[in-house]
């Protein structure tokens, strides 16, 4: 186990991001990418085989298989597995005529496509190749369960193949995971179920892919604690005594806000205790994370967090 150093999040050469669905990992990937580009590094943000790329609404450009530059130092792409399969074949089989024969043979190509794990392997291979052309690559992985399955594919391939091109490919990918600048970060929300899933996934990755460095965990959509116990007590008394509908709604709004603060505090404590990692907290922007403006705000919040990763005191 590598000791956690949250700075890897901000200077990674390749950073894989995952999280339960709906945690905002695409927006965060875009934000980490934007920050790296702003710091002058040639950066690529990668979406993984998404039929409807989420990066489109953020950058106003639909990412294609070939990276497109969206602003200074910043490119985006969508690694579609069909195109990745062609590239992979070209890399594995050095004779172009043979590649042609393989892709043109129905039985062979159907078999390759239907082989479980093949999609993930060729997508990872493409990411590995891309990482050689950029200073920073940010990968927006699928949701947790499937992301873990995908990252495990080189391991599985290694147990299946004693020799040959796939074995070689798997070895190279595992070496890639071992590189000092390569890491994985999970995105979490201050909600019980999301935290539980995050911790489970973390243990699984630690167990099965111990070489992957996990520098920190990102807690998205937090509400910094500020309410005092005396304020809370008064709020509860007001709620109990309120009869007017609007007065009830007002006090409930106040309690809702206070609940969010408590949830944030609990999430920070649980994540720190159960994962033993620095927790990087980002503010609420939940309602429009698909926009460029919010990604900019997230990038600024990240930049502040990179100066001092613990952004506010505990309780």
């Amino acid at each position: 186990m590598t000791s956690a150093d949250s700075s890897l999040l901000f200077r990674a050469r390749t950073l894989f991001l995952t999280g339960k669905g709906g945690t905002g990992k695409t927006a965060l990937s875009a934000a980490v990418g934007r920050l790296a580009a702003a710091q002058g590094r040639k950066t690529l943000v990668v979406e993984v085989d998404n039929q409807r790329p989420s990066l489109t609404s953020i950058f106003g450009v639909t990412p294609s298989y070939a990276p497109v530059e969206v602003s200074k130092n910043l490119s985006i792409c969508n690694v579609e597995w069909t195109a990745a399969m062609d590239d992979w074949l070209a890399d594995m089989v050095s004779i172009p005529r043979l590649v042609m024969m393989i892709t043109h043979n129905r039985v062979v190509s159907v078999f390759l496509q239907a082989t479980p794990g093949a999609r993930d392997l060729v997508v990872l291979w493409r990411i590995f190749q891309l990482s050689r052309n950029y200073e920073t690559v940010i990968v927006d992985l699928p949701a947790s369960g499937n992301a873990v399955a995908m990252m495990q594919v080189p391991n599985t391939a290694r147990t299946l193949f004693d020799s040959g091109p796939i074995r070689g490919c798997a070895e190279q990918l595992l070496d890639f995971f071992r590189q000092p600048g390569v890491g994985l970060v999970q995105v979490c929300l201050p909600e019980e179920m999301v935290i539980t899933e995050t911790v489970e996934t973390f243990r699984k990755i630690r167990g099965e892919l111990p070489m992957l460095k996990i520098p920190a965990v990102v807690l998205n959509r937090t509400t910094p604690p500020s309410i005092q116990p005396a304020e809370r007590a008064l709020l509860e008394k007001l709620r109990a005594g309120a009869t007017d509908t609007l007065a009830v709604e007002l006090t409930e709004a106040g309690l809702w806000d206070a609940e969010l603060e408590v949830a944030t505090l609990n999430a920070r404590q649980r994540l720190a205790a159960e994962m033993g990692l620095p927790v990087i907290s980002l503010p609420v922007h939940s309602r429009g994370e698909g926009s460029a403006r919010v990604v900019g705000q997230l990038a600024s919040a990240l930049a502040r967090a990179s100066q001092s990763p613990v952004t506010w005191r505990e309780g």
Binding site: M92, V93, I102, N105, V107, G164, P165, R167
Partner: peptide, 15 residues
């Protein structure tokens, strides 16, 4: 045999 040879290039004969 053709199919076999082609797949052999990727998967290896043993597999």
């Amino acid at each position: 045999a053709v199919v076999y040879r082609l797949l052999g290039h990727i998967f290896g004969k043993e597999f």
